[in-house]
Every structure is written in C-alpha cells, then in structure tokens.
C-alpha cells in the first residue's frame, strides 16, 4: 500500500496502530504477519498472529527497516510485531533534541 508521512494504519490481528513518520512509495507493511490496513477501517476478520511476528510492538517507539527509508511510530501497543514483507522492523534508538518548550 502507498505510504506517506502521516498515514495511519492498524493491525489486522490485534490492537496495534502506527503512524508513518517516513516512507517512500508502495510498502508491504505488516503486523503479526498480515498486511496493515487504514486506521479507522475494520480489519478483515479471522486472521491470527503468524509465528515469528509475535514479539510485541511498544507504545511510542519508532520502528525502522534495515535500509532506513521507512520509519513508523507506534500509537497503540499490542502483542504482534511489525515487518515489511518478512523483514522484521527494528526499534530505532532515540536521539531526542533538547527540550525547546
């Protein structure tokens, strides 16, 4: 599905929701091994978490792919984990700016 900054997605298997921080074009973003859909739309029923994609997604954490051209932020946590195709996403180490307000 076509992703861009600000796109909001939900998992088809549990509570996980993310917002796209950085993306380029068509990305096969999955959660629990199943394609994510637009937030706010009902997920197709019946899907369950695939083995290996059950490591959990943490609230407020940023997740990136290996090449670094995809970054999403978790806005609702859950037990399933994120991937692009079969490539799992990793937590991005935070480098916060100094507080400015």
């Amino acid at each position: 599905m076509e992703l861009k900054a600000g796109t909001r997605l939900r998992s088809a298997v549990d509570e996980v929701e993310v917002i796209v921080v950085k993306a380029q074009g068509d990305v096969d973003l999955r959660c629990g091994g199943h394609p994510m859909g637009p937030a706010g739309e009902d997920a197709p029923g019946g899907a369950s978490v695939e083995a290996g994609f059950d490591k959990g997604t943490l609230l407020g954490k940023r997740y990136v792919n290996e090449s670094g051209d995809l970054e999403v932020l978790c806005t609702k946590a859950g037990a399933s984990s994120l991937s692009v195709g079969d490539e799992p996403l990793e937590i991005k180490e935070a480098k916060p700016l100094p507080s400015s307000d």
Partner: peptide, 9 residues
C-alpha cells in the same frame, strides 16, 4: 511532536 521528541522520554 513526532519529528522532534521521543514519547514518554
């Protein structure tokens, strides 16, 4: 917020 801050930091 998302570009400059880390949630719960």
């Amino acid at each position: 917020l998302f570009n400059t801050l880390e949630f719960g930091s």
